[in-house]
Amino acid sequence: MASDQQKLQSLIDAYQKLQNDLQATVTARQKLESQQQENKGVQKEFTLLPPTSQIYKLIGPVLLKQDRSEAVMAVEGRLEFIDKEIKRIESQIQSMQSESENKKMEVYRLQTQLQQQGESVS
């Protein structure tokens, strides 16, 4: 009986930890999304820019002049990287979700089992 309770507790702990991890991963996913949006905005801005415009890049506190092609390439590279990261995290989220769903069912099963045991005892 007591060991069952302990088992339930550890299951619940594991479930909660999974939920927390999932939350953190989802937050990371959201951050990537906003970065992607920002980079897309910059990319669009580059296409709208007249060819003569001078582009600067902020590095630390300093503005450095940068080649247009270089800047465009940098943004493209970033977008590619973010795309990959999003895909990676997306699959991570999916596996975590199914895992936490499994844990939830396990907790639920053990809970009903314990309840039935308690009822039959009383």
Partner: peptide, 17 residues
Amino acid sequence: VLVDIGTGFYVEKTPPA
């Protein structure tokens, strides 16, 4: 003017632009 267009990039633009 120098406009911050995001992710650390700044672009020189005319005021109307």
